[in-house]
């Protein structure tokens, strides 16, 4: 049996007005694949789950003046860093098996 999930969507126009940013910035992020926009009846919406990431992109772009290519690179490197962090954690936990044996 499949269950229905509620999705929380925020219109791109409203988001941009609230954050005082250009709509073109959101479009550029979508074009580079950094965020996804859902279009319903010709209106673009952002899934609420992406908000945190999107606000981070805004800070990088507007506050730190990092361009889109830089944001893409940083996002990719942060993802790698996270997966390496998970791997280190897994290895540390494995190492605990042998700790205090010697």
């Amino acid at each position: 049996m499949s269950t229905m999930q509620t999705e929380y969507l925020i219109s791109v126009d409203e988001f941009c007005a609230n954050h005082n940013i250009e709509i073109s910035f959101i479009s550029s992020l979508e074009q580079t694949g950094l965020i996804e926009i859902t279009t319903i009846k010709k209106t673009g919406f952002i899934n609420a789950e992406q908000l945190q990431q999107l606000e981070k992109f805004i800070r990088l772009y507007y506050d730190l003046e990092i361009n889109l290519e830089g944001i893409e690179t940083i996002t990719h490197l942060l993802q790698r860093m996270n997966s390496m962090h998970d791997e280190i954690l897994m290895l540390r936990n494995r190492l605990r098996l042998y700790e205090s044996e010697f």
Binding site: L64, I66, I74, H85
Partner: peptide
Amino acid sequence: YRKLARKYHPDLNPN
């Protein structure tokens, strides 16, 4: 300031 902000910004230094 800009140089250091880019280096230490929390978004670029998680955890």
